[in-house]
Simulated scan of single mutants.
Amino acid sequence: MIAGGPRPVAPFSHATEVDGFVFLTGQMPTYPDDPDKPLPEGIEAQTKRVMDNLTLILKGLDLDLSNVFQVRIYLTEFDRDYEVMNRTYLEYFEPGKLPARTTIGVTGLAVGALVEIDMIAKRL
């Protein structure tokens, strides 16, 4: 668990590490400093909150987004939110240095979120 990280919404660790590979649990758009606060409204705000939570966890492990090589994204409203989520997601990575990625449409996510993102990183 990362000090100051988001409160888990289920029984899990923020991340686990094996042989330099770091597996980050899917994060929700909750606020680390106020986990009971209502979720941000809309896919853009929720994507930013999730990416900020993931960045916080990476920082707590002395890593950053340049260490990420695989991402999975789950969307409850795939057709409606895919384009806006993509634009928002791109703001977090250097141009031309994107990790591999899969995006999946799902019927529901914890805490009523519109988006959840998990990552795999590697210590370089």
Rank of each mutant, 00 (worst) to 15 (best):
P11V: 10
T47H: 06
D34M: 04
L39C: 02
P11N: 05
Y89T: 12
G108V: 03
V18G: 09
G60H: 09
P11K: 07
E83S: 12
L124C: 13
I2F: 06
F93M: 14
D19M: 09
K97Y: 05
D19F: 07
I104L: 12
R7I: 12
Q46G: 06
P8R: 11
F69A: 01
M85G: 14
T30K: 12
E94P: 11
L24H: 05
L75M: 11
A110W: 09
P99H: 03
V115Y: 01
L65E: 04
R101F: 11
D52V: 10
P6Q: 15
P95A: 06
N67S: 12
T25I: 10
T107Q: 03
L58R: 03
E77T: 01
D33M: 00
T103Y: 09
P6T: 13
P40L: 09
D33T: 02
K59T: 08
M119E: 14
L75W: 08
G60Q: 11
Y74A: 15
D64K: 00
V106G: 04
Y82H: 08
N53I: 05
G112Q: 15
M85N: 06
G20K: 05
G4D: 04
P8H: 00
G5W: 06
L61T: 02
N86R: 06
V9M: 08
L61Q: 04
S13D: 14
V115W: 13
M1P: 10
D118G: 15
R80A: 01
Y31I: 02
Q70C: 05
V115M: 09
M28A: 08
F21P: 03
L54P: 09
D64Y: 05
P6I: 03
R101G: 06
S13V: 03
P11R: 09
D34N: 02
G4L: 06
Y31N: 08
L63N: 07
L56K: 07
A45S: 15
V9H: 14
D36G: 01
K48L: 06
F23L: 01
M1S: 14
F78N: 05
L90M: 02
Y74H: 11
P95C: 08
D81K: 07
F93D: 01
I117M: 15
L98R: 05
D33C: 05
T25D: 04
K48F: 03
F21M: 14
N53Q: 01
F21S: 08
D79Q: 04
V71H: 04
S66K: 06
P6D: 03
Q46K: 02
V84S: 01
F12Y: 15
E77M: 13
A10I: 13
V71E: 09
P38T: 03
Y31M: 02
A45W: 04
D33W: 03
T47D: 08
P95E: 12
I57V: 08
P35I: 10
G105D: 14
M1I: 07
S66P: 07
H14Q: 04
L124I: 14
K37N: 15
V84R: 10
D36W: 02
G60S: 06
V84A: 03
Y82M: 13
V106C: 07
V22F: 01
S13N: 11
T107A: 07
R123P: 06
V9D: 01
G26Q: 04
P8M: 13
Y89L: 06
T55Y: 08
T76M: 14
